[in-house]
Design a protein around this nucleic acid. Structure first.
Lengths: 223, 223, 223, 223
DNA sequence: GATGAATGAGCGTTCATTCAT
DNA sequence: AATGAATGAACGCTCATTCAT
């Protein structure tokens, strides 16, 4: 995937000034990932990020209105990147079952290697998404942000996989529910595995999670 | 269920001073529910709660260390209450399948009537749990709180239903994963139905959610 | 006037917590007067006042919402105090002309001695009023504050003197205009005398100002 | 008055770079008027003005040191323009009384039609002057600005009318006081009429204001 | 035990300004 | 000459918390 000179495109509804358009902007993104990963989103502030990148917090405000917008940006980047990987992994494969299987693997597993899409550490980002992304849309102004299109990347992934589901079983009534249950479920089972093991099975073995959700999906769609 | 004089028991790891032990404590609980429901957990503060109940915020600190502990208390109360309802709904039913079916109904549906367990409005509490409870354990100190037993009520419910699952299919490898996926999934699908409809199916019809998860579970366990 | 144990009453629309009710509150008032006098209202901030009184600015917010409310409080105190002096100076005087004459003296002259109404330095306060009070009601939310009764003390003084005017000449059409012109005019002529001498006559001689406005009023009302 | 190709001359003490010398400068002036009128001088900032004219705030700093200088510039423009109108309205009139009468009308009434002196909306400007100009010289550095000649236009108008006053009554001791009282009084009575009606008479009727100050002046000068 | 008063620390934000282009 | 990017400093404000009563 390296050296492909492909860039994840992020729409202007997700920032005040495109962080991709300047060195400072890129620094903000890459360091926000390491900092959120380190101290958690609750304790993360623009002031701390400013110190971290040796820059004044006021500069960060040029790029993002507040830390929440930044989180939404990161999740959006993540889903655009996932979509790209899904496309890549499923082209030229005729069987929808096969395509769905490969897709489930991608959405249920945390990223293990950093292919370093430019300045973004995908491993850390993926960990943030798995444990913090839920906060990106559990807020009082979800509706307004949703209307502005802030969650389109996520919706796009769900839609893409729902379409494969319908290829396999056109009569299925709950394709979106199925896919979003898998995605959110996988995130949480991973988190439970690390922090609340009694809510899941077999500890940290993340392949079990993929196995579980794969079976779940195909049990549903079979026959 | 009214007039049964049953009380939900909450362990001392969940408060500094038992809110159930005084009029002020009960006021704190019942008003925190209405206030969190109204303005959301992010904007909720002890200062606002203090004003709301005409009391000084410092008094609230006697009962809870911070607003997060209060949220954990509320979720714990909720799960203890759910456990109580599960017991009630499944006693004297021989068939584990039947018991699981009834249980799934209870854990996937939001509460519609307030049976007014004393001073707690269960309808509002259930809405808070469905949309905010995720924040109770997505924090940097989950581990410490988990060790202190703060999430035992939730774990207890998951365990109880896992046991029923194993009654039905003793060889099943992922009973906890299955149950916690259903619970968390149902919470989120409800939330998506209200705020991010493209991530779910058929809008606000919450019976569809129960139907979906019921089918999901029994597809898994059949044969 | 000393030792009379009279207290200027200020209504609750003018503060969040009554500054008169605590030592800190009184410190806030007395030091805000010296500080505003020293550095001007524009440069005056709660942070600076906090440092000045060796206290945290957050404590000041308990008493006043913002620095503007504090200025409004000070003007209100001033006008209540002026009213008190007017009553004192005019009781038992039969002739309305005489009463008006004495009143004009009070409203056109800056205070020269501090009779020290408790913790308030009237000399400095009077200087603040003469040069800064105009900012108390030249704001975007005058209307709302006026509806809340924030300017009642000032209005009361104008009304009281207007009544004397009407005693002298019942047919006079512009009593309020006349009085408020005298008050505001005297404030500004004093200010001009110090800072923009070409807009006034004879420099700093403040008796000239009283003489001018006295003549102006009685020219108007005569015959 | 249109098409007369007369230009108000503003001295270099009032700007860093002459706003009249470039398109951007003119845009700054004309838009600052509409913006101050809209949001008030307190909330007005160069950043907002920059956005308003689609230009960077740093460009505005080329023309004016700060927002205060800009306000002083506007007031100066206003008074130069008033002087021009006074000259125009009083030439070829022999009677000083007649000249004073016409002058009082000009200085006490708000402008109602925009004769559009180039890019300046005189109606809005006049409203700004009536309600905000007081802030132009109630600052800690009046003296320095006054020495630099920033208020010469205003002083010129007061002087011109004082001269007429002395033509009528050479022995009069307070000509400047009289004129500046009329000007400032008329500004404030207009403001009171809109926002603090209890400090004036008969509401919004601005002719009453002219009538009042006319009478006031001639009562003073008669005999 | 409950309260009120006071505080320190820090957050989000904005402003005026500088620097490089 | 005009602009855009970035900055430092401060502001207004609120939060969680402590202390004294």
């Amino acid at each position: 995937m390296k050296n492909l000179y492909i860039q994840i495109q992020i729409g202007p509804e997700l920032y005040s000034k495109d962080p991709n358009s300047s060195a400072l902007g890129q620094k903000i993104i890459s360091n926000s990932i390491t900092l959120i990963h380190e101290i958690g989103f609750e304790d993360f502030t623009f002031r701390k990020l400013g110190k971290h990148i040796q820059s004044n917090e006021s500069s960060i405000y040029r790029y993002f209105e507040n830390k929440h917008s930044l989180l939404v940006y990161l999740t959006s980047w993540y889903w655009s990147w996932i979509e790209y990987r899904l496309v890549f992994a499923t082209t030229n494969i005729a069987s929808p079952t096969e395509r769905l299987k490969k897709s489930i693997l991608i959405i249920t597993q945390q990223v293990k290697e950093d292919n370093s899409f430019g300045y973004i550490n995908e491993v850390l980002l993926s960990e943030i998404i798995f444990s913090e992304s839920v906060k990106a849309y559990h807020t009082k102004n979800v509706d307004e942000e949703n209307n502005r299109g802030c969650f389109m990347a996520y919706v796009g992934v769900v839609q893409r996989l729902s379409n494969i589901v319908l290829e396999i079983k056109p009569s299925f009534k709950f394709p979106h529910m199925l896919i979003s249950t898998v995605i959110e479920g996988a995130h949480q089972q991973n988190y439970f595995g690390k922090h609340l093991p009694k809510l899941t099975d077999k500890g940290k073995d993340s392949e079990a999670i993929t196995e579980f959700y794969s079976e779940m999906v195909f049990n549903f769609l079979k026959k």
